[in-house]
Amino acid sequence: MVLLLGRVVIEGAAGRIDSNRQSAAVELVSYLALNPGADHHAIDNALRPGRLDSKQMRNAGISRTRSWLGKDADGEAFFLRIQDTGYSR
């Protein structure tokens, strides 16, 4: 659950994440909660405007966030994979 009013909180994250990476993960989850279906172009533009990070750097952050959120009772990741459109920087 993403609580967006007041201090932003992600409830129910089952995994672990380094404290220095958590704020970026919270930003990503919050953005996606407000913008369902956003692709990697939109994520890049919203979270890192004007920066030309590599596809690998973005994907590493997404992977860390996916691990932190964990899986549901059926074993499905709470944070599903974004379809690869072949775009890279």
Rank of each mutant, 00 (worst) to 15 (best):
residue 1 M to F: 10
residue 1 M to R: 03
residue 2 V to R: 03
residue 3 L to G: 01
residue 4 L to N: 02
residue 6 G to I: 09
residue 7 R to Y: 04
residue 8 V to P: 06
residue 10 I to Q: 02
residue 10 I to N: 04
residue 11 E to R: 08
residue 11 E to W: 13
residue 11 E to H: 09
residue 11 E to P: 01
residue 12 G to T: 02
residue 13 A to P: 00
residue 14 A to R: 11
residue 14 A to Q: 13
residue 14 A to P: 00
residue 14 A to T: 13
residue 14 A to V: 03
residue 15 G to E: 05
residue 17 I to P: 00
residue 17 I to G: 02
residue 18 D to F: 07
residue 18 D to H: 05
residue 19 S to L: 09
residue 19 S to C: 10
residue 22 Q to M: 15
residue 23 S to V: 13
residue 24 A to P: 03
residue 24 A to T: 15
residue 25 A to F: 01
residue 25 A to C: 05
residue 26 V to G: 02
residue 26 V to H: 01
residue 26 V to A: 05
residue 28 L to T: 06
residue 30 S to D: 07
residue 31 Y to P: 00
residue 32 L to A: 03
residue 32 L to K: 00
residue 33 A to R: 00
residue 33 A to L: 06
residue 34 L to G: 08
residue 34 L to F: 14
residue 35 N to H: 10
residue 36 P to I: 15
residue 37 G to N: 12
residue 37 G to D: 13
residue 38 A to E: 12
residue 39 D to V: 06
residue 39 D to H: 01
residue 39 D to P: 00
residue 41 H to F: 14
residue 41 H to C: 06
residue 41 H to S: 11
residue 41 H to A: 14
residue 42 A to S: 12
residue 43 I to D: 04
residue 44 D to L: 09
residue 44 D to W: 04
residue 46 A to G: 03
residue 46 A to W: 00
residue 47 L to H: 05
residue 48 R to T: 04
residue 49 P to F: 10
residue 49 P to C: 09
residue 50 G to R: 08
residue 51 R to S: 11
residue 51 R to L: 15
residue 51 R to F: 15
residue 52 L to K: 13
residue 53 D to A: 03
residue 53 D to Q: 02
residue 53 D to C: 02
residue 56 Q to D: 08
residue 57 M to Q: 07
residue 57 M to C: 13
residue 57 M to R: 09
residue 59 N to T: 02
residue 59 N to H: 09
residue 59 N to Y: 02
residue 59 N to L: 15
residue 61 G to A: 15
residue 63 S to K: 12
residue 63 S to M: 06
residue 63 S to V: 05
residue 64 R to Q: 12
residue 64 R to K: 12
residue 64 R to M: 11
residue 66 R to P: 12
residue 66 R to F: 09
residue 67 S to W: 01
residue 67 S to H: 09
residue 70 G to R: 06
residue 71 K to A: 14
residue 72 D to F: 00
residue 73 A to H: 08
residue 73 A to S: 05
residue 73 A to D: 06
residue 75 G to V: 03
residue 76 E to L: 15
residue 76 E to I: 06
residue 77 A to I: 05
residue 78 F to H: 14
residue 79 F to A: 09
residue 80 L to F: 10
residue 81 R to E: 11
residue 81 R to Q: 08
residue 82 I to E: 08
residue 82 I to Y: 03
residue 82 I to A: 11
residue 83 Q to S: 06
residue 84 D to Y: 03
residue 84 D to K: 01
residue 85 T to M: 15
residue 86 G to H: 02
residue 86 G to T: 05
residue 86 G to N: 03
residue 86 G to L: 04
